[in-house]
Design a binder for these strands. Structure first.
Lengths: 224, 224
DNA sequence: GGGCGCGCTTACATCAACCTTACGGCGCAG
DNA sequence: CTGCGCCGTAAGGTTGATGTAAGCGCGCCC
């Protein structure tokens, strides 16, 4: 799961990014509404955390623009206490939830998962495949009910594979989800993470395997 | 599915070809409008990606010529931002969509599938035959709902057979689709790929078989 | 029957895609 | 500061797709 954080305050943005990373959620950051639009055009995000208090005041414009085009991506807006009017306009324009700064990160995370569930992206909060279970809320992978420790990238990868439920995950898509806008792709990073995940799954006794579809991508399959 | 890319910039053309190949779409390339006409006369293409900014300015002429002869092949035109007039003329002459350079490949691909769906009148994006399902969007073949891993060429071949829905696929047509303008055909490549596909289908438990029509071609049939 | 055309099958060289391992950098906890 | 784990990169080995070719079988026609 990858988020887009639209926030001009670098410090806050960095804090959010690292807090999300601790929960195995990756994120990209845009400083302006314009950047955000560009990034939204070229990658897929599970949700957007949008600061309405951007210096140019374009946060609201971005929001309206997205909704005007029928884009249903979940959006949580952040506002300063002094801008309560914006908050109303934001919800009016189609935001899914809001928080008033300052806020606790746990609060943000809780609302995010709530919004994601509400929006129907998730049927429940458990993806099951063979003897694997992935808890979307806690972002833990269980093998036969036992937690398997995974890194952030590895977590993103299993989630991707499990979400596709036995269908192919194109390599390109995996790159997007794992590395986001890091277009400095001079490497075989996806392959490396597939390898690491395969090892961990095997050692944990998973009844699944990751198959390679040459020239296309990967898929998760039950062991015959 | 095979495309014709009419583009004088070799680098761009190569990049497009490889990007399409990644999505299991084959393509041929013409450098000039004249070449393009020749190629169109001897092979069938699902769509044309046409750069209107050809040095001799013949891109538009080619477009007009095709439409004047009632050729309905889907055409997406590429123009530089400085040639907006051309864009209008192009749409006027019967192009189905346009992109302004520079553009994201994903954007091109999305528009292409949209145009194909619109024009080709796909009922859905799923071709079904016996217990086979071919998802046109993701280019996956499912046997009893399970993904069967196929190579690019093999994928082209099943798609061709399924699109004909029980009618014969002339061998010559298969050659065109699989190998395009590679007229250096000193081989029996089609036969080899039919053989490989037959094996994979049988091992996957397909309820269909590929029959040989001697001297003509192949057809897909339900097993009696 | 025997030659012939067509298709089937297997084998093979080539090369890109992929796997695997190793390593240096970086952030964090102790 | 130091050890540890995660991260991304690089390098070399391995695998599998691809197109070509050769041998075989089968039916057709003379």
């Amino acid at each position: 799961m990858r988020l887009l954080i639209v926030e001009d305050d670098r410090e806050l943005a960095a804090a959010l990014a690292s807090a999300f990373a601790r929960r195995s959620v990756s994120s990209d950051r845009a400083e302006t509404a314009g950047d955000a639009e560009l990034m939204l055009a070229s990658a897929h995000y599970a949700a957007i955390v949008l600061d309405l208090g951007l210096p140019d005041g374009d946060g609201l414009v971005l929001l309206q623009h997205l909704r005007a085009h029928g884009n249903p991506v979940p959006i949580i807006i952040l506002t300063a206490r002094s801008d309560l009017g914006d908050r109303v306009s934001g919800l009016d324009a189609g935001a899914d939830d809001y928080l008033i700064k300052p806020f606790e990160f746990d609060e943000l995370f809780a609302r995010l998962t709530a919004v994601l569930r509400r929006k129907g992206g998730f049927q429940g909060n458990l993806l099951t495949f063979g003897n694997l279970q992935f808890d979307i809320a806690t972002r833990e992978l269980l093998v036969d009910g036992v937690v398997l420790a995974l890194s952030v990238r590895e977590t993103e990868l299993v989630e991707l594979l499990l979400r596709r439920d036995g269908r192919v995950v194109p390599k390109r898509l995996a790159e997007d989800q794992l590395f986001g806008m890091n277009d400095n792709l001079g490497s075989n990073a996806v392959e490396v993470y597939v390898h690491r995940l395969r090892q961990k799954l095997e050692r944990a006794g998973a009844a699944t395997r990751i198959d390679t579809i040459r020239g296309v991508g990967y898929l998760m399959r039950l062991i015959a």
